[in-house]
């Protein structure tokens, strides 16, 4: 379920990620097959990332620039996190394959998965690092106080949610999750770890 306005962005990121997986160089034809986007979105995406100096185009082949390699790594890492999280923990996109975790008792395997989710916390950075209007994905909420943790979670601030920073105040940060806005103390926000989007 991809929103139309995201389609080009998805295509761009897929191209960069696929190039990264192929050691930074591939023919446009093979890229187009792998990325599976419509022809027009694909060519717009190629045009756009070339303009951003992320790839070089030569003889119908695309190769990553230094800047592009870095970007591709970022996307790959993010992709892994998102994939891990959604596949193994909450199962928003692949709800059915995940449903058994919650519908029945958690298996040994599921616990391991949860543990691996906790391991991702090191990869995120504190929510406070996001600048106004930047978007990120919450990968961990490491609040030491369990009751505060429950409060945060029950408000809908949860691992796997997309978060946008809507503003900053001296003592904290204003965030937006799913059309809901919150003011979060910096003492809480520093424990909310996110991976930057884009």
């Amino acid at each position: 379920m991809i929103k139309k306005e995201d389609e080009q962005k998805v295509a761009e990121e897929d191209i960069l990620r696929t190039l990264g997986e192929k050691n930074g160089d591939a023919s446009l034809k093979s890229l187009m097959e792998e990325v599976q986007s419509s022809g027009s979105a694909f060519s717009r995406a190629i045009e756009n990332i070339e303009k951003k100096n992320l790839i070089r185009l030569e003889n119908n082949r695309a190769s990553l620039t230094d800047k592009g390699i870095k970007k591709a790594d970022d996307i790959l890492r993010k992709h892994l996190v998102v994939e891990n999280y959604f596949k193994e923990s909450r199962g928003a996109a692949e709800a059915h394959s995940i449903a058994h975790i919650f519908e029945h008792r958690l298996s040994e395997e599921a616990i391991k998965n949860m543990e691996s989710l906790y391991n991702l916390r090191e990869k995120g950075e504190p929510l406070l690092k996001l600048k106004p209007y930047e978007e990120g994905l919450i990968v961990n909420i490491a609040l030491p106080d369990s009751k505060l943790f429950e409060r945060v979670v029950s408000m809908g601030i949860f691992i796997g949610e997309k978060v946008t920073v809507a503003g900053k105040i001296p003592g904290g940060v204003i965030i937006k999750i799913k059309n809901k806005k919150f003011v979060v103390d910096k003492n809480i926000a520093e424990y909310i770890r996110v991976i930057k989007n884009g």
Binding site: S89, R90, A95, I101, M114, S146, K147, E150, S154
Partner: peptide
């Protein structure tokens, strides 16, 4: 297995809540 059991309970409950909501 559960160094923070209170937290795991909250996570499971929220997980079920969001799964039900999503369905």
């Amino acid at each position: 297995k559960h160094p923070k059991i209170d937290r795991d309970i909250a996570v499971t409950r929220y997980g079920i809540a969001s799964l039900l909501a999503e369905e």
